[in-house]
């Protein structure tokens, strides 16, 4: 009896792969020649001509082999892949720019001193962003204290109580996530700074940031709490627990890592928020640990100020600050992803 070997005809064969490769490099060469021969020039011309030539070659091949519908399919595939590429290009460019421009400004004194004794045009060996880092941490801390309880309570209302306000609240949280950050700043300015405190301080920044943070925390927590199996709640009730005990002892602990994710995403949302801080915090250059008094610096404010100062050293400072800020956000982001892959502890 002769054995029948299993085949997988849907997989691209070596010949297909080779053809793909040849098409790819062929179109690359063709686009180079096109740019060299005609009066088109620049990166844009290379990109556009490459995409069109690649699409045309794939389409012609498919048309000859399979027919019209497949030709269209392969041409569209090229355009869709090119759309995906267009999304990646700016990210790559942004990361490359921050790293290449920011690393020059990263030196030990950056993390050890503030700007109170340095002007923007000073060499980079003078001054640093310690005050900005401290200020950002304090403001985020303040925003956390205010917004995490409210955010999680909102999520609990949407998942546990499900009262008659569920739909309106879900809608309002959505609407709140679209509040422009500058409006949050103006609101705190009009509601707290002018009538009550009459001066800018770090805490005012925290208030504005928490308005921006609540929707993120609430929506992510709602998703996480929705993933908790209904059995757990029923088990809690069956054991004679009140709803309060069930939520506090079973639902919330089970959702712990997910709620952490929600909090971290909230922090990542506000860490780089600039506009409200420009209105509310005063942006001091001196190290300040008191959020209720005196202007307080922050990373976004520091970056903004250095960027507007315009001198070469100042712009390098701004990039260094951006690098620090982005690294912080990336760390937060990665830890949120790691936590969220564990999703629900049973």
């Amino acid at each position: 009896m002769n054995e029948v070997k299993p085949t997988s005809p849907w997989k691209p064969s070596a010949k297909d792969k080779l053809r793909e490769l040849v098409t790819f490099f062929g179109s690359m060469v063709a686009s180079f020649t096109l740019v060299a021969v005609t009066e088109l020039k620049g990166k844009l011309a290379y990109f556009v001509s490459f995409v069109f030539i690649y699409a045309a070659i794939s389409a012609i091949y498919s048309f000859r082999r399979y027919g019209k519908a497949t030709a269209k399919d392969s041409a569209v595939k090229v355009f869709i892949a090119c759309g995906a590429l267009l999304t990646i290009i700016p990210i790559a460019s942004i990361l490359q720019t921050i790293i290449s421009k920011g690393y020059k400004g990263i030196r030990p004194n950056l993390f050890l001193s503030d700007m109170s004794m340095a002007t923007p045009t000073d060499p980079l060996t003078n001054g640093g962003l310690l005050h900005a880092i401290v200020g950002t941490i304090i403001m985020i801390g303040g925003a956390l204290i205010l917004s995490v309880p409210i955010g999680i309570l909102t999520a609990l209302y949407l998942t546990e109580i499900k009262g008659r306000f569920t739909q309106p609240i879900r809608f309002l949280v959505q609407a709140m996530s679209g509040v422009p950050s500058i409006v949050a700043g103006l609101f705190i300015l009009s509601a707290v700074v002018y009538p009550i405190t009459k001066s800018s301080s770090g805490f005012m920044g925290s208030l504005a940031l928490s308005i921006l943070m609540i929707p993120t925390v609430a929506r992510t927590s709602e998703e996480v709490l929705g993933l908790i199996p209904q059995d757990l709640r029923e088990a809690g009730t069956a054991l004679g627990g009140t709803q309060w005990r069930t939520v506090a002892m079973i639902v919330l602990p089970a959702a712990k890592s997910g709620l952490m994710t929600a909090v971290i995403l909230g922090i990542a949302r506000i860490a780089g928020e600039t506009a409200p801080l420009l209105l509310l915090t005063g942006g001091g250059d001196r190290l300040n640990f008191n959020p209720f008094d005196d202007p307080m610096g922050s990373l976004p404010f520091y970056i903004w100020k250095s960027f507007l100062a315009g001198s070469e050293e100042a712009v390098t400072r701004a990039w260094a600050g951006l690098l620090v800020l982005v690294v912080v956000i990336l760390i937060l982001f990665v830890s949120a992803r790691i936590l969220s892959t564990r999703k629900v502890a049973r």
């Binding site: 460019s93 942004i94 780089g272 928020e273 976004p300 990039w319 982005v326």
Partner: peptide, 11 residues
């Protein structure tokens, strides 16, 4: 989506 807007501005 989590990049700060000031980064987009300066870039």
């Amino acid at each position: 989506a989590a990049f700060p807007s000031i980064l987009f501005g300066i870039w």
